[in-house]
């Protein structure tokens, strides 16, 4: 674009002018506090009971208690 330099110059001016207005007031830093009461520790997984049965019940192919995702063949 031929006037790219001009646009850049205008952009710098815009940023200077806009940010200047936000420098006048001293603001308090605020933090979002997360309620950690129900936080799960990484070392204590929550097991979903019945998950294995549910997954197996919809498996397209199974081998006993195992879900067959891909069956290798000799080529």
């Amino acid at each position: 674009m031929s006037n790219r330099r001009e646009i850049e110059r205008e952009a710098e001016h815009v940023l200077r002018e806009l940010s200047k207005h936000l420098e006048e007031i001293e603001l308090e830093e605020t933090y979002h506090v997360i309620d950690a009461e129900s936080l799960r520790a990484d070392s204590s997984p929550e097991l979903r009971r019945g998950f294995r049965e549910a997954a197996l019940s919809i498996a397209p192919r199974r081998d006993g208690a195992h879900y067959v995702a891909e069956a290798g063949t000799w080529v």
Binding site: R4, I7, A11, L22, I25, L27
Partner: peptide, 26 residues
């Protein structure tokens, strides 16, 4: 293009929290 340039510039300089973080506070 002007807005892309400005967004790119602010994102690069934001480590100091001078523009975007301040705008969020406002």
């Amino acid at each position: 293009l002007r807005r892309i340039m400005l967004g790119s510039y602010i994102s690069q300089k934001e480590y100091a929290g001078r523009y975007y973080r301040r705008a969020l506070q406002f």
